[in-house]
Design a protein around this nucleic acid. Structure first.
Length: 594
RNA sequence: CGGGGCGUAGCGCAGACCGGUUAGCGCACCUGCUUUGGGAGCAGGGGGUCGGAGGUUCAAAUCCUCUCGCCCCGACCA
């Protein structure tokens, strides 16, 4: 596919009048490389917590990312439209999200007193739009998308532009007659996503994900492995299975133990309420203990029991319970219910108003040390099924590094961190049913439309590109998303240097986007800035070079330097770019550069 | 929302404990001259409601109260 984005008809951009100011020093409040570089190179400026200005050079990058997204969305039949950020609360009340979503959804009343909110995504508006259009199976399928501001009042914005309160997102919505059709289309989106990320210089891992408050069935996150990432995912070292830790299944291996089972025995364990305390007291590993964690799930007490070597995964627990709100229970509430915090055993299941959940990892051993249900006592050699009721077990544990893979025979799990670049959901009928988006089938029966939705964050993609493409001196933009293709540096203020740089810049700008550094700055400053800004090709014009009618071209990514006659500069840039395209794994159509 | 920290020039900071010159330094910015292949030199200069409000005092950047904002860790995260 041709990267026409690099082609340009625009004039040379003159740095001296361009709204761009780099900084000499690293910003103190930035932690991750992309944040530091975006600020240092003058791409972003914070306006409020999680709210940023994007300067012209940054917006050029965003425009290129958006254009690649557009091309790939259009390729799979997407129809671009524009939906509003300002939404009436009534639409969100219809789907139930008005109450289901927390304070991230900004709610307010307009001047007439009508309840409004600022859209964090557009399922409501798109479903509302579609129900005015869809009536027959003949109308399906289709896909709509837009690239629009999203507002989410995040509790804690962080990582520069990684997690913010206002951002641009490409969100796409597909509409189908049934799950089979959705499933088939989902593959198209999946492939389009892979193409988009490859083209912008990223290589995220598609991982199975929890659907969260979005609802629906299948969901994948595209996670770019990075230390700066906020998501943790599990990956099998053999079969490649990848799953967000919020969803990753845990298979515990049963340990072979002697068939002789000692009788349960109460042991005095003064003030020992943690697994660590008990480990040192009993002198055995954490997997010998039955750990109890008490929660308040939508107002009822839930106590989850798990093998002491594992941690409860609250997302999985929440899903198992179908709970909206899950918090750690306060001890007073437990005491009131007749529970002894710190010494809880599954025998409390008989108490009224208490739900007990047993994690599957409990099955891995035949006997445990568990709570004694009275202060300062534990029970040793407690056998599941004998000393407490072994009801159905559930999978609510967090997978650990080194655990066996749930998919293949002999793989083990590795935990990695990643940046969520995109998320795809097979929504199903959650929105169509609640909002009455139905169609008449060939049999003349009304059925809810089956939907999918697919997001990509634009600023986060930009930041991720920097995370993946930078060095000690600055950003190294891939040619597909670079704000400019060539940066021309005249060294010195000599009239002939200025004139030659101008000629070179004009010649190059016939085909490439060019930033001409016409500032009255020393050579060192210009070199440092060109490296910081990360423009793929640097063209130097100096007195020495002019004497021989030459310009020097340097490739930012590789450091390769060539000196060529001034007239050959455009042709040489072209071949350098083809070299870069190959290195970066992107295609350039031979018709480009023209 | 819990814990910790910070608000003084565009950016980074000092001054504050112990109230008292005209609030200072570096970078950036302006003028002039020199300089121009790796963040230049000399000289001169502009820019401040000291986050905001109230209070104490003869006097507040400095002490007290309230408030707003921002950062970090955690919780949260369609």
């Amino acid at each position: 596919m041709p990267e026409v984005l690099l082609s340009t008809q625009e004039p040379v951009i003159r740095y001296s009048h361009y709204l761009l100011r780099t900084r000499r020093e690293d910003p103190t409040d930035a932690e991750i490389p992309s944040h530091k570089l975006l600020v240092k190179a003058g791409f972003i400026r914070q306006v409020a917590a999680g709210v940023f200005d994007f300067t012209p050079i940054a917006f050029r990058v965003m425009t290129r990312i958006m254009e690649i997204i557009r091309q790939e969305m259009n390729r799979i039949g997407g129809q671009e439209l524009l939906m509003p950020v300002l939404n009436p609360a009534s639409l969100w009340i219809e789907t139930g999200r008005y109450n289901a979503v927390g304070a991230e959804l900004i709610r307010f009343a307009d001047r007439r007193g009508t309840d409004m909110c600022l859209a964090m995504t557009n399922e409501e508006t798109v479903t509302d739009l579609a129900r005015g259009y869809v009536s027959s199976w003949r109308d399906l399928p289709f896909m709509l998308y837009h690239i629009q501001t999203k507002i989410r009042d995040e509790a804690r914005p962080r990582g520069g532009v990684m997690r913010v309160r206002e951002f641009l997102m490409k969100d796409a919505y597909s509409f189908h007659r049934d799950f089979t059709d959705l499933g088939a289309y989902y593959v198209n989106v999946y492939n389009a996503y892979r193409r988009i990320f490859k083209r912008i210089g990223l290589s995220p891992v598609p991982v199975e994900a929890d659907t969260g408050a979005m609802g629906g069935s299948a969901s994948h996150e595209f996670l770019q492995p990075s230390q700066s990432g906020e998501d943790t995912f599990a990956r099998c070292n053999r079969c490649g299975m990848s799953s967000n830790i919020e969803k990753a299944e845990v298979v515990s291996t049963a340990q072979a133990e002697g068939s002789r089972q000692a009788a349960a025995e109460e042991v005095h364990t003064p003030n020992m309420t943690t697994i660590d305390d008990l480990m040192s007291f009993f002198g055995v590993g954490p997997d010998r203990f039955l750990k109890a964690v008490a929660y308040d799930a939508d107002g009822t007490i839930v106590v989850a029991f798990i093998n002491g070597a594992y941690e409860i995964n609250e997302t999985k627990l929440k899903n198992a319970l179908g709970a909206m709100e899950l918090t750690v229970a306060d001890s007073r509430k437990l005491t009131d219910a007749g529970i002894v915090p710190g010494f809880i055993s599954p025998r409390i299941a008989k108490l009224s108003g208490v739900t007990v959940l047993l994690d599957r990892t409990i099955l891995s051993r035949q006997a445990y040390v568990m709570g004694g249900d009275r202060i300062d006592y534990h029970v040793k050699s407690a056998v599941p099924g004998r000393d407490f009721t072994l009801s159905d077990t559930v999978d609510i544990a967090s997978v650990r590094e080194g655990d066996p893979c749930p998919r293949c025979a002999d793989g083990t799990i590795v935990l990695l961190r990643g940046i969520e670049l995109g998320h795809t959901f097979q929504l199903g009928t959650k929105y169509s049913e609640s909002m009455g988006l139905t169609y008449l089938s060939e049999e003349g029966k009304a059925a809810p439309v089956v939907m999918g939705c697919y997001g990509i964050g634009v600023e986060r993609a930009m930041a991720s590109i920097i995370e993946a493409h930078h060095d000690e001196t600055g950003i190294v933009w891939p040619i597909t998303t670079a704000p400019f293709t060539v940066m021309v540096l005249p060294l010195g203020a000599d009239a002939e240097v200025v004139a030659a740089a101008d000629t070179t810049a004009r010649a190059l700008s016939q085909t490439y986007s060019v930033l001409l550094d016409d500032r009255q700055e020393s050579a060192g400053v210009k070199f440092a800035d060109s490296e910081l800004l990360g423009i793929p090709i640097r063209a130097v014009v100096s007195k020495k070079l002019i004497a021989k009618g030459e310009v020097e071209l340097k490739v930012r990514r590789t450091g390769e330097v060539v000196v060529v006659p001034q007239k050959e500069a455009p042709e040489t840039v072209r071949s350098l770019l083809f070299g870069l395209a190959e290195k970066e794994g992107v295609m350039i159509d031979d018709s480009w550069p023209a």
